[in-house]
Design a binder for these strands. Sequence first.
DNA 1: AGCATATCCTATCTATCAAGTAGGATTCAA
DNA 2: TTGAATCCTACTTGATAGATAGGATATGCT
Lengths: 151, 151
Amino acid sequence: MQVSARGEYAVRIAVTLATGHPRTISASSLAAAQALPRKFAEVILGDLRRAHLVDSVRGVEGGYRLARDPGDVSVGEVLRAVDGPLSEVRGRRPEETSYEGAAVNLPRLWVAARAAVRSVFDEVSLAQAATGEFPVRIAELTAADDAWMPR
Amino acid sequence: MQVSARGEYAVRIAVTLATGHPRTISASSLAAAQALPRKFAEVILGDLRRAHLVDSVRGVEGGYRLARDPGDVSVGEVLRAVDGPLSEVRGRRPEETSYEGAAVNLPRLWVAARAAVRSVFDEVSLAQAATGEFPVRIAELTAADDAWMPR
DNA sequence: AGCATATCCTATCTATCAAGTAGGATTCAA
DNA sequence: TTGAATCCTACTTGATAGATAGGATATGCT
């Protein structure tokens, strides 16, 4: 589960938009609020707009706003918009893998891993990410001490 | 959850070793069995050896074997040995992230995602991956039809 | 009309890394 | 001593991430 800089920035931008919803916020305000390179933020906002996750308004007083309610947009959608599929194995989607011999069962493993990732990112909305009021399942996952430990 | 070619190859090699355990198998046999570039397989086996997941025997009749019982080595260990940490956010471990403003709660989200990934890869042994007899939780994750659908 | 403030578009740069290759030194059993 | 294997160092190649640059275009205000 590697989240790129683009992905991280996109989510930070998205939760900032969620907090301000439905006001429009300029790219430079967003960049300043989250300490991101402004130009890079613009690129990312372009991705989010093309994915129809945000609307943009040009001109003075312009900026960006979420296209839907913050409770209705998942973190997963944001990540996919900027980084592509959540899960890939050697550049392929899990269900497209296929092996011979001892490895024949691996596709099921890859699919299970993807399902696990989805069960987090697709089940958390921007509103939840912004407020910290996560679904019970997510709270459970972070409850164990060792969830916070490196391995 | 991006699994690199190295990661995929490593797991395929590891389950092949699991199936043949405790016989030693040469790098070229392993490469042939899984249709991998031999030299690249050697590199990966070197990583696994340095991580003490496999033992090697030099000379004629030499090769590699799992250092522990196939039921006692997890897929997660293999992936970490060749690809580093299972989950990173912008090159950092989830628990090392920290944000201001609307993004303050994101570290919990990243930790939850990592926990979800671990709940798959750290809970499946090479023996299970080889036989396809996955733990119940994994079977459940792959049971739903839409687990096999792209998004 | 003119100006300030935005988005938007195209292009470019640079460093890093993944993936794979090459060649040979070393080890070991028969 | 020979053949088959691991092991070691180095290299190549292409793609990609993570930006940055400059300006064209749109909009609201006075």
